[in-house]
């Protein structure tokens, strides 16, 4: 089992205007046992060091998840139970990963003598195995998957306050308890994580339904035999194209993953 992973973060035009750096960060790793790990963080525009906070959060979360022993993500393993036994095992594990990321960010802030809110960012974490997908999310942005039949599903929804520019951050009080945890015990053919800059292009709001015209070509793209450098450049070009920048001026991050090998239930 293997995954093909592409990702890009690009600076929004409004950030360019104000000479702000891109405050999004992402990271992805494929473990030796075939688990895919992805993290996306969107630094708060108002927080002075949010780019550092976002980078620290994704790196700390991935480092933590890289060395864990994961419970199985498939339903079929749960004996004697009609209901899947995923939640009791995965939920604390994912919240612990969020806590680890938060601790790393708070420590970085303390080392710099700054308040943690200066390092505020959102955080989306995803773990995928051939058997299924687990996601944890604080703040906006979302994770979407396509199953083997080509059906799209939103794994998470953007967390928003009353106002369009309000969300929850990793460093916010109660953020980890309020994190959305989502588990899908079915194999993913395609996975997408994105920051809120793409939300209004990718999801049909307010329901948060994945927009087929947006995701189908992307998943078709990631499921081809790709030369990764060229494909990453194309993803970057897409995110900086006028078609996109006319619709959103925020920082944009999009990470795509496609499953390469047949899932083990075929074997």
């Amino acid at each position: 089992m293997n995954w093909r992973v592409l990702g890009a973060s690009v600076c929004g035009t409004s950030h360019q205007k104000r000479s702000q750096p891109c405050q999004d960060a992402w990271a992805a790793t494929i473990r030796d046992d075939g688990f895919l790990l992805v993290a996306v963080a969107d630094g708060a525009g108002s927080a002075a060091r949010s780019r550092d906070g976002a980078t620290c959060a994704v790196e700390a979360a991935i480092a933590y998840l890289a060395n864990l022993t994961f419970p199985d993500l498939t339903n079929q393993q749960t004996c004697d139970k009609e209901e899947p036994d995923l939640e009791p095992t995965w939920e604390p594990l994912l919240r612990e990963a969020l806590t680890t990321a938060k601790t790393a960010v708070v420590e970085q802030a303390e080392a710099a003598g700054l308040p943690p809110r200066d390092y505020a960012s959102t955080l989306i974490l995803l773990v995928a195995s051939p058997a299924g997908v687990a996601v944890a999310q604080i703040g906006d942005g979302a994770a979407v998957m396509m199953d083997e039949s080509g059906t799209l599903m939103a794994l998470t929804q953007p967390q928003q306050g009353e106002y369009a520019n309000q969300t929850t951050f990793l460093t916010s009080e109660g953020a980890i308890a309020q994190a959305e945890i989502s588990l899908q015990p079915i194999p993913a053919q395609g996975i997408a994580l994105f920051s809120d800059g793409l939300q209004r292009l990718a999801l049909q709001m307010p329901e948060g339904t994945p927009h087929n015209g947006f995701f189908s070509p992307l998943f078709q793209f990631i499921n081809q035999d790709l030369e990764l450098d060229g494909a990453n450049a194309q993803l970057q070009d897409f995110l900086t194209s006028p078609r996109v920048s006319q619709r959103t001026d925020d920082d944009l991050t999009l990470v795509l993953a496609g499953a390469i090998a047949p899932s083990p239930r075929d074997s």
Partner: peptide, 20 residues
């Protein structure tokens, strides 16, 4: 390999109202 997809041409956007 399938025909190369050009993301810039292929991807369509959801129609959502602008935030006010």
């Amino acid at each position: 390999m399938s025909d190369a997809i050009r993301l810039e041409d292929a991807v369509e956007f959801a129609e959502n109202p602008e935030p006010r």
